[in-house]
Amino acid sequence: MSLFRRTLILAGIGLPASALLDLAVPGSAFAAAADPRMAVRALGPADAKVVVQEWFSLTCTHCARFSQTAFLEVKSKLIDTGRIRYEYHDFPLDQVALTAAMVSRALPPERYEPFVQALFASQDQWAFSQSNDPQVELAKMAALAGMSHDVFQQTVADQGLRQAILDEQNAGQAKYKIDSTPSFIFGKTLFSGEMEYDTFLQKVNAAAA
């Protein structure tokens, strides 16, 4: 999904990109110290030779398709075997995706990845239904993940968490020149767009060389 389809949620963030790069570098100690919910969410060993970042939006259909296809092999063959460390980075392209990202990060870290995968698997039902309110459907999904109704309401109204996600998104965009989702960073190399497992593996091998 193109960056140009974003709504104006990123307008008026306040700090210039140069300042955001200093204060909110993805996965930085600053972000985690400011709000533990902003600590990096990752799979795989911390000392893996290759770190792969995925920048994604929970309402991106391309991200959802990657999650349900190539990522299954990525997880079993590259993450679970310790070849790579896989980091998730939010790049919400609309208000619904931003709310979903907030809820995802408010869950305990061990529930984050299963919840994200569940959201991608049911994207049509909670994000794009013509008859249902996305926030109501998201609340149902959060309840299944163990989040109480009160915590859900507090989370979606949390302007500090909202701003923290937007700040990191803006910093990542400035640093890596991301303009679409999904975007992947293999070590230091950016690749934007959906890909098959074989292409993903080639990028990992090149980063490890």
Rank of each mutant, 00 (worst) to 15 (best):
M1A: 12
S2K: 12
R5K: 13
L8I: 02
L10A: 04
P16Y: 09
A19I: 14
P26E: 12
P26N: 08
S28T: 00
A34N: 06
D35L: 01
D35F: 05
P36T: 11
M38A: 13
P45T: 09
A48P: 01
K49L: 15
V52D: 00
T59K: 00
T59Y: 00
T61Q: 09
T61Y: 12
H62I: 10
F66Q: 01
A70V: 14
L78N: 02
I79C: 01
T81V: 09
T81A: 07
R85K: 14
E87G: 05
E87L: 09
D90A: 12
P92W: 02
L98D: 00
V103G: 00
V103S: 01
S104M: 13
P108A: 08
E113P: 04
F115G: 00
V116K: 10
D124E: 14
D124P: 03
Q125W: 10
W126N: 02
W126H: 08
S131F: 02
N132Y: 06
D133R: 06
D133T: 07
D133W: 04
P134C: 00
E137H: 06
A139H: 06
K140G: 07
H149W: 10
D150W: 02
F152G: 07
Q154V: 10
T155P: 03
T155R: 06
V156S: 05
G160C: 01
L161T: 04
Q163T: 13
N170Q: 08
G172Q: 02
G172A: 10
G172I: 03
K175S: 06
T181M: 08
S183Y: 13
G187F: 15
G187N: 10
G187K: 11
F191V: 12
F191C: 00
G193S: 10
G193Q: 11
E196H: 08
D198R: 13
F200R: 03
V204D: 13
A208H: 07
A208Y: 04
A209P: 04
